[in-house]
Simulated scan of single mutants.
Amino acid sequence: MTGEARAWLTVSALASTSPEGQTTQRQMEMNWEVVDVMEGDWIGIFDKDPSGDWSNPVDQRTPRESFGYFITNATLPHLPVSTEQMEGACLGWWVAYVRDDTPIAIDCFKVHPRWMSALKEQIGAVSLRNLVWPGVHDAGTYTPYSQLADNSLMKYAITQDESIYNQLVYGNRYIDLRAGYFSGDPDEPYWVVHGLTVWRPFREVLQQLLEFVQSTGEVVIAEVSGFTFFETSEHHTGCIELITEVVEEVMAARDLTWDATLADLLQTPASLIVIYDHHEADSHPLFWPEISSKWANAQSISQLEEYMYNVFEVDGPPAAPWKLNGQLTPLAEDVITDDLGSLRIMADEVNRNVTQWLQTRWWDQISIISCDFVLSANYVEVAMEVNLRRIAK
């Protein structure tokens, strides 16, 4: 933390429906970090910029510790965010940490459609392998919350509630995609899957990637894996052909390697790095090889923290680039017994904590970081901050 205080907003991963049918979802969270909490300090959320007038917060709370959060009654609707918005544009909610009747920290909830381009002058010379990439776990398994999707299967399958295009507009630059092959649909055999749940045509998510990269020129990593029901090499060949059919014009050549700089890719229209986690793509000039991955397979935050401690401080992380899966994972018996509640509850338990650990403890070692329900983490702004902090180190 720089200065005496920080405040920022996230969107709670929690969602529920009351017995009366009332839905609660996408509540704004006020987060803060201060050196010391002083008598009279308060934090508030505002529906207009409080820089000139902070007397009318929509919700106001009193912090008791130097680091924490409050879930407010303010909510963020599913907004039609777009690459047409300015980098860092505010989306209607602000937060202020107030001391002695003066805000000492103000921030807003933002989009980041062009943060790489905005930071090109500062971090453009950094190699791709040495950047921090904020990312999305199971990015294609998205759907807005509803009571119908809150059943015993879906609440352990849905990982996001924003489209891939929106995930990118909010600033994420690593997209985890799981592909499945279904022979019963000869016109559309490739679909996004999560385990055995099937979501949307793979072509659809590729088109979202294409639209974003064409509009912004930002550098994006898309990793394709899973390959549910891929039984022959022809199934992989078909998937590879589909990917190139849709996004070939923006695919970065494999021979650039991870030693290319951010500026190298920002100055070319081909800035989409596609990783294909199967040897069938090994000889293709547009598909990058699989990278190392660290996955805790943890069911509690204490297990996840212990795993991350071992990765960063005992064994040491793999050679960059590598990805850290920062989410909890339910076992089959957890889904059956429903002991963990849902992926939303699990994300709420870990996202803010992992964000803090990456920002304060392991900022100089992280590479690609991903999670469920990304708006409840602050990965994008942490990545921006850490990328700048590293070059100043």
Rank of each mutant, 00 (worst) to 15 (best):
L79R: 11
D100N: 15
V81E: 10
M308N: 11
A5T: 10
R114V: 00
Q356L: 10
V335S: 02
A392G: 04
E290R: 14
Q22E: 14
P321N: 11
T257R: 04
Y145P: 10
I240A: 05
P19Q: 08
A179S: 10
G3I: 12
A89W: 02
E33L: 08
R361W: 00
S300Y: 03
I301V: 13
E231F: 00
A125S: 15
P113S: 04
F312N: 13
Q147T: 15
N130G: 06
M116R: 06
H78V: 09
T261D: 06
S18V: 08
I336V: 02
L76E: 09
R361L: 11
G40Y: 09
V111N: 01
S302P: 07
Y276N: 04
K323I: 15
T143F: 11
D364K: 09
A320P: 15
N353H: 10
S292R: 15
Q365Y: 05
M384N: 00
L266M: 09
M154E: 13
M38G: 03
L76K: 08
W288N: 10
A377H: 09
L209F: 01
G124W: 03
V224L: 11
Q207M: 13
L196I: 15
S12H: 07
D185K: 10
L177Q: 12
G217T: 04
V246T: 02
G226A: 01
S12P: 09
C90W: 06
S300L: 09
A252P: 07
P330V: 11
F182H: 15
C371Y: 04
W94P: 12
Q359F: 00
V111H: 05
D255K: 02
P269F: 04
T2I: 14
D101L: 01
A118P: 01
T228H: 03
T102P: 01
E29G: 02
V386M: 04
I345Y: 00
F67W: 13
Q167K: 02
Y145K: 06
Q207F: 07
L168H: 06
E306H: 13
A253T: 12
C371W: 00
F109A: 09
S376M: 05
F373D: 08
E162Q: 15
E84P: 01
V95R: 02
A253E: 13
T337A: 05
S127A: 11
F109H: 05
Y142M: 06
W115Q: 03
A347D: 01
H279Q: 11
I221P: 01
D282N: 11
D59H: 11
T337V: 01
R200G: 11
L266I: 12
Y165W: 07
L119W: 01
G341P: 05
M346F: 00
V34G: 03
S82D: 10
G140I: 10
A281C: 05
D364E: 14
M116Q: 15
